[in-house]
């Protein structure tokens, strides 16, 4: 997966409303302050619930939309081993989608409602998947950079205050680290190969580098996260996570033998970090707002799958109904 550190309102949560109660609020605040977990049955402020539904469902949507750019290459994978690895990876992503929808459902919203929000365009998913996968190395770069950035974003979520989300993230992070290593391994194999293969890797890195570092969201000065920070949902700032990612990735790029497309990227001994160039936030917001290369196609693919599958879901429900009637009659 792929969280994007950006809170985008999706509209009203439709879960059960709970009364605001000062005594409960005090108990909730104390639990958060002590670093404890909030569980599904615990009282929670309505705004906390809504924020979590939005964040967890955006994350779940990102997992399932994220299957599309990778699915684009399964049928063309260049070896059976790589085909098998990619199939296993997209299956993991479907699984992450399932745990996350289940975590969101504990907050009083159904998977169908969340789907409807995605398919109507009301809910967001990570913008990174609105970029196209144009050569086989893109599959490796998604593992290395995109999953790598996602892991940086997600490790702090393993300690987030909402228990079901935190537990889902522990499992997801383990699988994502595996995907990242597999992606890097794919790229190493290509870099040991022919000049054409190395060119493909460099081309993919050139296209995915900036979108990957945009995954950490706007700069801290432009980003309002006071409530999510206070609630123990967001624990590390966007810029700190981004810096950590850049610092880790530069060395990996050197080992791989690719250059990163940023002339301003250089070690700053005084800060003890790499400096990097200005992010093109216009591009970021354009893609978030629906004007990326693949926004229209990705959503259309999800809508088509849902609409084409309607008769199948109806059949399953009708069969279950018939079976229940027969079992009742037989009893």
């Amino acid at each position: 997966m792929y969280t994007q550190s950006l809170s985008i309102p999706d509209g009203e949560a439709r879960g059960p409303k709970k009364v605001e109660n000062p005594a409960y609020q005090a108990e909730f605040d104390a639990k958060i302050a002590a670093g404890g977990f909030i569980e599904a049955k615990d009282w929670m402020p309505e705004a906390y619930r809504k924020t979590l539904i939005r964040q967890i469902s955006q994350h779940a949507h990102s997992e399932i939309v994220g299957m599309l750019p990778e699915g684009n290459w399964i049928t063309r994978a260049p070896s059976l081993k790589r085909k098998a690895i990619l199939l296993a990876k997209v299956q993991d992503e479907g699984g992450h989608g399932l745990y996350l929808y289940a975590a969101a459902e504990t907050l009083g919203v159904s998977r169908d409602e969340l789907y409807e929000a995605l398919l109507s365009g009301k809910a967001k998913y990570s913008s990174i998947f609105n970029y196209p996968t144009l050569n086989w190395a893109d599959i490796g770069v998604i593992g290395w950079l995109v999953d790598g950035a996602a892991i940086m974003n997600q490790i702090p979520l393993c300690k987030c205050s909402y228990g079901p989300y935190s537990r889902a993230m522990v499992r997801i992070c383990k699988e994502e680290s595996f995907h990242q290593r597999q992606g890097y391994d794919l790229l190493l194999a290509m870099m040991r190969g022919t000049p054409e293969q190395r060119d493909m890797v460099q081309d993919a890195v050139n296209r995915w580098w900036w979108p990957s570092i945009m995954m950490f969201g706007p700069h801290d000065k432009d980003s309002v996260h006071t409530e999510t920070t206070r609630w123990g949902i967001k624990r590390i700032s966007n810029d700190d996570l981004r810096q950590k990612f850049v610092d880790a990735t530069v060395k990996q790029a050197e080992v791989l033998g690719v250059s990163l497309p940023d002339p301003d990227l250089k070690w700053n001994a005084e800060r003890g970090h790499y400096d990097f160039g200005a992010i093109d936030w216009d591009e970021f917001w354009n893609v978030v707002q629906g004007h990326g290369q693949c926004n229209v196609d990705r959503l259309a693919a999800r809508v088509k799958a849902w609409e084409d599958g309607a008769w199948v879901r109806e059949a399953a429900l009708e069969h279950a109904r018939k079976r229940a009637v027969r079992e009742k009659d037989a009893a």
Binding site: I64, M67, L68, E70, G71, I74, T75, K83, L87, V90, Q91, G94, G95, G97, L98, Y101, A301, R302, K304, A305, W306, D308, G309, A310, V312, R313
Partner: peptide, 14 residues
Amino acid sequence: SEWCGHAPVLEEDM
């Protein structure tokens, strides 16, 4: 493998 991402429900995608 052509089905990836296009199945009627997420469980069947998997």
